[in-house]
Amino acid sequence: MVHYIARRLLYMVPTLLAISILTFLVIQAPPGDYLNTVVAKLEAEGQYVDRAQLEALRNRYGLDEPIWVQYWRWITGIIIHGDFGHSFVYSAPVADVLKERFGFTVLLSVTSMAFVWAVAIPVGMYSAVKRYSPADYTFTFIGFLGLAVPNFLIALVLMYISYSYFGQSVGALFSPEFAESSWNLGKILDLLSNLWIPIVIIGTAGTAGMMRIVRANLLDELHRPYVTTARAKGLTEGSLLMKYPARLAASPIVSTIGWLLPSLISGEIIVSVVLNLPTTGPVMLRALESQDMYLAGSFLLLLSVLTVVGTLISDVLLARLDPRIRYGKR
């Protein structure tokens, strides 16, 4: 097991390297260098530009040096000093903006994933066991619908309904009385009571997709000879299902973290923009609109790293479940 985890960690290195290079290229993509953008922006606002400060910034990012030196400075700054660069939209270090926002994104993505599993696995299993029953058709239809409706549209409709019928806006993670207060039990409970709306919206498409996977996987297993054998030996239907087919059907489910997490993060971003949640989504959009590339790029980098780590966790879980993977059989 340790051997397996070590090998997977080793595999991560080239992926992370590729992600960092891609992010760096994205940061470099806009025409002109970063400082020109900053200067243009400051001058457009009629602010005084300090030449000495500019020189200092130019040195710090090594803008006069070849591109690989710039990349090296940028990536070592992140790894060693946690220095992601400077955001001129927020006039603050990128790391500070990230710190504020990234936690909520992780929270929302992880809880949405838990929601997807909590709903999709039982429903998918029920659909498979009661195949072609009215409930199965209903769930299948809801599943198709969930895949077809863009999640920002669900957010819009919910916003419309709650505003025009209940006279309140959905979306904020905290009620007004807790928004500014420091963390305490009341605030946490308040967060939990508000969190479910974005979770349901973000999780819809994932739940729909996952439901179909669970159903298909379990259906494949249910007609295997070993199930018939177990039934012939007198196992009750319930323990029969949980003991063998459900466990075998579970391994592809765990391996879906790899695609579920990126899609949840994508959903989280757009839903947060609509509901104006204090997560990465709105900030990233704002950063892109004003070409604040260090900020936008850092978000891309961290979100990608988050998915890579998520995939690693899913692979380790999968190896726990399935010894064939653990012992490196291909």
């Binding site: 790899g258 990126p262 899609s263 959009l285 891309l300």
Partner: peptide
């Protein structure tokens, strides 16, 4: 590698450029 990048942020960044 490509699949491990969340698609929407990448699309947003590319489209914005």
């Amino acid at each position: 590698f490509i699949m491990s990048i969340p698609s929407l942020p990448l699309w947003m960044v590319l489209a914005a450029s």
